[in-house]
């Protein structure tokens, strides 16, 4: 088996080695390795899936099967900022739909789309566990809560 370490940065490789050593069975590290490779690459394309499959000695189809089960793995390219608006119950009854419509209008894209400059991708997600500060969204890994259109506007401006 040949794993081409240069596929990822040295920092990512060090993380992977650490993660793979944490469990009684190395396969347990699969979800974590998918996370760190995605952190570096932005999304998981065929090359990334195949590389991870070689690392774990699994068929690439098996790795893709696992990755596609979970919603946090991007299997297609996403913008620099991935805007994830919660539209589940507590958020939707406190105005999440309005937030989504506002962002759509502001960025000129629909849910599921990416701005032409590749900067923003807008998606809706299920409950983020921010119901106490609804409506809420995540941009990449950061939470933004108690949203109002004005607040969202300021946040988007700050990202430009």
């Amino acid at each position: 088996m040949v794993v081409d370490r240069s596929f990822v940065s040295e920092e990512t490789w060090a993380k992977i080695e650490d993660l793979m050593g944490r469990y009684p069975d190395k396969r347990s590290a699969l979800l974590q390795v998918l996370h760190v490779v995605q952190d570096e690459k932005g999304y998981l394309n065929y090359d990334a899936i195949k590389w991870i499959a070689t690392l774990f000695r699994l068929p690439p189809a098996e790795v893709y099967s696992v990755a596609s089960f979970y919603t946090m793995y991007n299997l297609k390219p996403v913008g620099k900022y991935l805007i994830q608006v919660c539209t589940n119950i507590s958020c939707s009854i406190t105005g999440a739909d309005e937030i989504v419509r506002f962002i759509e209008k502001k960025l000129g894209i629909k849910v599921g789309e990416t701005t032409p400059d590749g900067k923003f991708t807008l998606i809706t997600v299920e409950c983020l566990g921010s119901c106490g500060k609804a409506p809420a969204m995540m941009i990449n890994k950061d939470y933004y809560e108690e949203l109002t259109p004005e607040k969202v506007e300021r946040i988007l401006e700050s990202l430009k």
């Binding site: 944490r22 469990y23 347990s28 979800l31 974590q32 998918l34 996370h35 089960f69 979970y70 919603t71 946090m72 793995y73 997600v125 299920e126 409950c127």
Partner: peptide, 10 residues
């Protein structure tokens, strides 16, 4: 104790 992150599946 090992922290294991999920990846989006209720």
């Amino acid at each position: 104790i090992v922290v294991h992150r999920g990846a989006g599946a209720y």
